[in-house]
């Protein structure tokens, strides 16, 4: 009698578990399917558009034909500019936070501010960039203003990834270096930074991926709807890939005719993100193996 009862309980337990696991598996795969569907839709639609001409020619006939060369170049400038600003400052800040400050109120405060900065919506960065760089400092709509705005946006990401990279360096290396009579700065420069370098670079690559796709911060600080020539100085306006996609898919008179260009642009954006991700992963793996072997 007792055993059958127990059997019944365990059977119903089993049934519940099976049902629940089935539902979770279905939902899990459902999400993956949606995500893959989005990716493959853009890849399939965009692949037929992308050609050598597409990435090296100027837009033509009201953006319904031709390429997106100036937008690609504009995005390159913006990425380079923002990283020139954010990377050194971010790395230095992370070194200070991880190697110099001891846990306490100051560190907590800086960390709180950094986290808050990373949570601020990108459109607010756009407002701020317009108020400070474009209007107050008089840079106008320019690559400089856009790069600084994007740089501020990327700063928390750089700081966080660098800090993690520094934390991953085992303290025994630091102690060994001190034991040999090295100063703190020598230890950081000769021991900690070289070891953390791969992970720091990985963080840099990931923030490049992020910055290249941001639209809202550049709307009012740099982006131009259509420029038939390339920017010649950092005070020029520029076209940019994400803004280009936004404009040709929502406004203008030839939305239908410029659809292929939009698919192509979307695919280029996805490829950038993809390449950054793969590169970051590959680097991480490569250096990890190297560390293990040595």
């Amino acid at each position: 009698m007792e055993t059958t009862n127990e059997n019944r309980i365990s059977k119903s337990k089993d049934r519940h578990q099976k049902a629940a696991f089935f539902v979770f598996a279905v939902l899990g795969y459902f999400i993956v399917t949606i995500l893959i569907a989005i990716l493959s839709f853009i890849v399939i639609k965009g692949a037929s558009v992308i050609s050598w001409d597409f990435i090296t020619k100027m837009p033509e006939e009201g953006m319904t034909k031709g390429g997106i060369y100036p937008a690609i170049i504009g995005t390159l400038y913006l990425v380079a500019g923002s990283m020139l600003f954010a990377f050194p400052i971010g790395v230095l800040a992370a070194i200070y936070m991880n190697e110099y400050v001891s846990d306490g109120v100051a560190k907590k405060f800086i960390r709180l501010m950094t986290n808050n900065l990373s949570g601020i919506p990108s459109i607010v960065f756009g407002l701020f960039g317009m108020a400070l760089f474009v209007n107050k400092l008089g840079f106008g709509d320019s690559i400089l203003a856009g790069s600084l705005t994007l740089g501020l946006l990327a700063l928390p990401v750089v700081i966080r990834t660098t800090e993690e990279a520094l934390k991953a360096v085992n303290d025994t290396f630091r102690h060994a270096s001190y034991g040999l009579g090295a100063t703190k700065w020598q230890t950081i420069r000769r021991v900690v930074l070289p070891m953390a370098f791969p992970n720091i670079i990985t963080g840099l690559i990931l923030s490049i991926g992020r910055v290249s796709g941001e639209t809202a911060p550049i709307l009012f600080t740099v982006a131009a709807y259509f420029l038939p020539k390339l920017p010649t100085s950092i005070f020029d306006q520029a076209m940019a890939l994400p803004y280009h996609l936004y404009v040709i898919s929502t406004s203008g008179t030839n939305i239908e005719e410029s659809r292929p260009i939009a698919y192509g642009t979307a695919l280029i954006l996805i490829i950038i993100v993809l390449v950054c991700n793969l590169l970051a992963n590959a680097l991480r793996k490569y250096f990890n193996n190297k560390v293990k072997m040595s």
Partner: peptide, 17 residues
Amino acid sequence: PLIELLAGIPSVVYGFF
């Protein structure tokens, strides 16, 4: 990694989709 990759896709691409 697939899901992490999707976190990196720009919002304007999601909007376009």
